[in-house]
């Protein structure tokens, strides 16, 4: 990390820590969701941005994560924080398993297969033999986590929205640090090499099959953890919250935020959380019309997304400063 980047991250974290004390509870809740989406987008970016495997069905892994958390809390009485690693593990396995057949599919066909997964997920969740756990069409309502007692004893007063926000912030920070560590080194280079020239990458001794299925697993794990966190924040899971459009929202997020970029996940998350809110006031159909136009616009004009634009601007700005 350069010194400038370190300063940037510190400032960002400081702002993130102050925000919930200045904005309303509802806004805090929205910011929590931004963090949740950011984790999911980072996961999708590992797979699609860095490794070049197109997934149009990541909403399915988000759903699996959300349901794992909800079932664990509702049926087995697990504490909310313990559901995150569990959801992550479940999705890691699910993603790895789905990634094995996906190894044989390239480009368009993988997109097709994952699209099919995304479309059929709500129906799978409604499956009546699973109703005992999943609650069928009704879904599951879960309790809102209260801030732990030791905070109050330490003199920090927080309501549950604020506590949830900080919990999500901690998880997101952890996931981003882990992701950054994973992607900046050997593994990240291998993933990019497979994306750009898979034959050359294999000739250099990269085990393409292993890396590709691992990328699928890790990506699903990130998205699953996001799903679990999202379920805790929203306090409700139901099959129809996880339609194919959720997967497409994630796609919008990484394209707008910036493919193969870690900070892009954050920009993308802000975009998919707040733009529909504004657009909803125009018409019910407006958010998706805008999403669609942004998708096409970004592919044509800004293929590197917001993250790429910020990078370009920074370079220009610093060069001028150096003169």
């Amino acid at each position: 990390m350069t010194r400038r980047a370190t300063i940037g991250v510190v400032v960002l974290v400081a702002i993130a820590c102050v925000l919930p004390f200045v904005v309303s509870n509802y806004r805090t809740f929205q910011l929590t969701l931004v963090l949740v989406y950011a984790i999911a987008l980072l996961g999708l970016n590992i797979l699609t941005g860095y490794n070049g495997q197109i997934s149009l069905g990541h909403g399915a892994f988000y759903a699996i994560g959300a349901y794992s958390a909800a079932v664990l809390m509702d049926r087995f009485g697990a504490p909310y924080w313990a559901t995150l690693p569990a959801a992550g593990a479940v999705c890691l396995v699910a993603g790895f398993l789905f990634g094995l057949p996906a190894l044989r599919l390239e480009g368009l066909y993988l997109a097709l297969a994952t699209f099919a997964l995304g479309v059929s997920m709500p129906q799978l969740l409604k499956y009546h033999h699973l109703e005992k756990w999943t609650g069928g069409v009704q879904g599951i309502v879960i309790a809102k986590p209260e801030p732990p007692a030791f905070l109050g004893e330490a003199g920090l007063r927080m309501n549950s929205d604020q506590w949830l926000y900080f919990f999500a912030l901690a998880v997101a920070a952890l996931m981003f640090v882990l992701g950054w560590n994973l992607l900046r080194g050997r593994v990240g280079r291998a993933l990019i090499a497979i994306r750009d020239q898979h034959i050359a990458a294999e000739a250099m001794g990269i085990n393409s099959a292993l890396y590709k299925s691992l990328a699928f697993g890790v990506s699903a794990m990130y998205t699953g953890i996001a799903g679990a966190l999202g379920a805790i924040a929203v306090q409700y899971v139901a099959p129809d919250s996880f339609t194919i459009f959720l997967s497409l929202v994630f796609l919008v997020g990484i394209v707008v935020g910036g493919l193969a970029s870690i900070s892009g996940a954050l920009y993308g998350a802000l975009f998919i959380q707040f733009v529909p809110n504004v657009a909803d006031e125009i018409s019910k159909a407006a958010p998706w019309a805008i999403f669609g136009l942004f998708l096409i616009g970004f592919v044509y004009l800004m293929p590197a997304g917001v993250a790429g634009a910020v990078r370009t601007l920074l370079v220009r700005f610093t060069r001028k400063g150096a003169k």
């Binding site: 497409l248 998706w288 592919v299």
Partner: peptide
């Protein structure tokens, strides 16, 4: 990927 994204954009538009 770019082509798939454009298709998806068309779909939602």
């Amino acid at each position: 990927l770019a082509i798939v994204v454009v298709f998806i954009a068309l779909l939602v538009i």
